[in-house]
């Protein structure tokens, strides 16, 4: 639980009015305070630790893994070996080291998920700001389009788009970004709706500010908290979406060590007792998503204060 009561007390007693230097420094103080709160949050720290390991894998994975994740011509001799001290996670049907593939596989999924979520967040925030600020006809039309998008299941939409555009990482990013944008737009719109009623927005109108300035310079900085939270939430979903789509064969293509692809290639031999080539990539997906959710929890608690 967060500790809202502390805020109650602080709010009642404004900080001292002694000069404290320039605004930039003040911003730094606020940021440092947030980081301090985050560093005290156990959920955030646990999530950040696991996520950090995956980021490390994504960046340095190829340099640290014991075997070539794409395999070598001699691998086939060691196919489907159970986990052991030479192959921590065993080997797959082609004799490739599952541990190396899981470690190196972090890169594709992280890059694609981050890019897709970023695209969705930027698009969604823009739509949310415009609909929330203008309301009226603009709001009605855009939000009905958003509703229509929300009504189509992700997988169907993605499948159609991927078939039409051909499977590639860029297609994955675009498809997931576009599917996420309406969801993010709804959250941002709700935040903007309450924000635009505040008088600083009217004060801006009384200076005859243009709408884009009011939306992006005045309101946007005040709705960053829900946007950041939404970004982290969507990042978790993006990882699921990518794994699902690659599992269905629409994403990254072999011989990539993508986790979804590994599961797809190996789940058919599960009932032959070969559980390791499927289990470890699946665990990696779960661990990554959970770590992101823990981070989300920590961040949203700090922002809620």
């Amino acid at each position: 639980m967060s500790r809202p009561e502390e805020q109650v007390v602080l709010a009642e007693h404004p900080l001292p009015e002694t000069p404290r230097g320039e605004g930039d420094e003040e911003a730094r103080v606020a940021r440092r305070e947030r980081l301090r709160l985050l560093s005290r949050s156990k959920t955030f720290l646990a999530g950040a630790l696991v996520f950090g390991v995956f980021v490390f894998c994504a960046i340095f994975g190829e340099a640290v893994v014991p075997y070539d994740p794409l395999g070598s011509p001699t691998d086939i001799l060691n196919k489907l070996e159970a986990p052991s001290s030479s192959h921590y996670f065993g080997t797959d049907q082609l004799g490739r080291d599952v541990f190396s593939r899981v470690v190196v596989g972090a890169r594709d999924i992280l890059v694609v998920a981050l890019a897709a979520t970023l695209l969705g967040t930027v698009l969604g925030a823009a739509i949310g700001l415009v609909t929330g600020y203008f309301r009226g006809l603009v709001d009605d039309v855009l939000m009905r389009i958003v509703d229509a998008f929300l009504a189509i299941p992700l997988v169907i939409l993605a499948t159609v788009a991927l078939v039409a555009l051909g499977p590639s990482k860029v297609t994955l990013v675009v498809v997931i970004g576009i599917v996420f944008a309406p969801i993010i737009a709804r959250t941002v719109r709700a935040a903007v709706l309450s924000e635009r009623e505040l008088e600083y927005v009217q004060a801006a109108r009384l200076r005859n500010e243009h709408a884009p300035y009011i939306m992006f310079a005045e309101i946007l900085p005040n709705v960053t908290a829900p946007i950041v939270v939404e970004f982290t939430v969507r990042l978790g979903y993006a990882i699921f979406a990518i794994a699902t789509l690659t599992f269905l064969g629409f994403g990254v293509q072999p011989p990539s060590p993508d986790w979804g692809l590994q599961i797809k290639e190996n789940y058919v031999i599960l009932n032959g007792g070969y559980w390791w080539p499927t289990l470890f990539p699946a665990l990696a997906i779960a661990a990554l998503v959970i770590s992101i959710n823990l981070i989300t929890d920590g961040i949203s608690r700090v922002f809620e204060r």
Binding site: L15, E17, P19, D24
Partner: peptide, 16 residues
Amino acid sequence: DVRLLGARPAQLSGGL
């Protein structure tokens, strides 16, 4: 006080 120009509203009292 001009020395407070860099402050954000939250750092000021209601009167300021």
